[in-house]
């Protein structure tokens, strides 16, 4: 229990935010928590939030690791389009499901390798290095789909988008499994700490014997792999690969999820769970807006205002204000000391 406490304190702001937003939606929408089973699949608004949030959650996993190394991966949306297109192409060309998935996932890994090479070997700044693939990636995806929406009817592939396992939608299962696996790998080994070390001080980590080059490339490849999974889900969901629109602007949502999750863009300490909750917060806001019935002109404004409020509440200034008013003056001195230590 005492081991869990710091962890809970870490993700508490995110949990509270999610609870408040869910509370708001259920206030507007009393039937919010009604979950039934339709077509052998759980059906309800909370399920929609999990299901629709899965692609961004997957991207956020990779993005958290990249950001922890003080990098950023702008290409994930385009990589989604490439991998979705690869999957659709493979299945329509008559390859087996396993081969198709392998090709799509490898495409993601290759994209990650490219980003990692530019960042770790050539030393290009991550925002510029990944911008290249962000711009070029949709072109690559269009080459694969030949400019059209490449549709398919393979039940096996569709399963990844709109199928279900024990009544739980497949994207949710993939998202949870990927999150759990990534958390286990980085937290049950020294990997997580080494990634944080790179983000805090790349040169010091290299000098103390961390193979930063390989680790950086591996992190970008992980991000590519997560984007590939998200791309397969997105394509399977609509039974077609839309090179122009698949994953469009999702890189920004993924970065936002990481930021809401409290991981600093300057690298260093990170929390995968908090980023995943961040992704759910974003999707809850999106779904809430759709349910609210406001005219679409207001969508982006409402979203921006909500995000702004969340970020203001999480800002260090706000935190110290809250702590200042909730403690006696003697205690406030202690807190100041605490906030100095990162």
């Amino acid at each position: 229990m005492t081991v869990m406490l710091p962890f809970l304190r870490r993700i508490m702001p995110q949990l509270i935010t999610l609870a408040v937003i869910v509370g708001l939606i259920s206030f507007m929408f009393p039937g919010f928590f009604t979950i039934s089973i339709a077509n052998g699949r759980l059906y309800g608004i909370p399920i929609d939030i999990l299901n629709r949030g899965a692609p961004v959650a997957l991207l956020a996993i990779g993005m958290t690791l990249v950001i922890a190394t003080r990098g950023i991966d702008l290409s994930v949306g385009a990589v989604m389009a490439i991998c979705g297109a690869t999957a659709a192409w493979g299945i329509t060309e008559g390859y087996s499901l396993a081969a198709t998935l392998a090709m799509a996932l490898s495409a993601g890994l290759v994209c990650g390798l490219w980003n990692g090479f530019l960042v770790a070997v050539l030393g290009i700044q991550p925002i510029v290095a990944t911008l290249i693939l962000m711009v070029a990636g949709r072109g690559v995806a269009q080459l694969i789909t030949e400019g059209a929406i490449l549709t398919f009817n393979h039940e096996g592939l569709i399963f990844f988008g709109s199928g279900s396992l024990f009544t739980v939608p497949t994207p949710v299962i993939i998202g949870v499994a990927a999150g759990a696996l990534a958390t286990l790998v980085v937290r049950r080994t020294a990997l997580g700490m080494l990634i944080e070390a790179i983000g805090i001080n790349l040169r010091a980590s290299t000098l103390s014997g961390v193979n930063t080059r390989v680790l950086l490339i591996a992190v970008y490849m992980t991000s590519g792999l997560c984007a590939a999974l998200a791309g397969i889900i997105a394509a399977a969901d609509i039974r077609g690969a839309d090179a122009n629109n698949a994953g469009l602007w999702l890189e920004l949502d993924a970065i936002l999820a990481v930021v809401i999750g409290g991981t600093s863009l300057l690298g260093g300490r990170f929390s995968l769970i908090a980023s995943l909750i961040g992704a759910l917060i974003i999707q809850a806001v999106n779904t809430g807006i759709l349910l609210s019935g406001f005219p679409p002109e207001f969508n982006l404004i409402i979203k921006a205002v909500i995000i702004l409020i969340i970020l203001i509440l999480q800002s260090p200034t706000m935190r110290s204000v809250v702590i200042f008013f909730s403690r006696d003056p003697a205690g406030a001195g202690e807190v100041e000391k605490e906030t100095v230590v990162p």
């Binding site: 609509i238 839309d242 759709l290 349910l291 019935g293």
Partner: peptide, 21 residues
């Protein structure tokens, strides 16, 4: 009435919310 951005993905997502609502 809500925007689906002319795309399949958004069309599906928005229709899901219409059905729930």
């Amino acid at each position: 009435s809500q925007t689906g951005d002319f795309t399949r993905t958004k069309g599906k997502e928005v229709m899901e919310s219409f059905l729930k609502a």
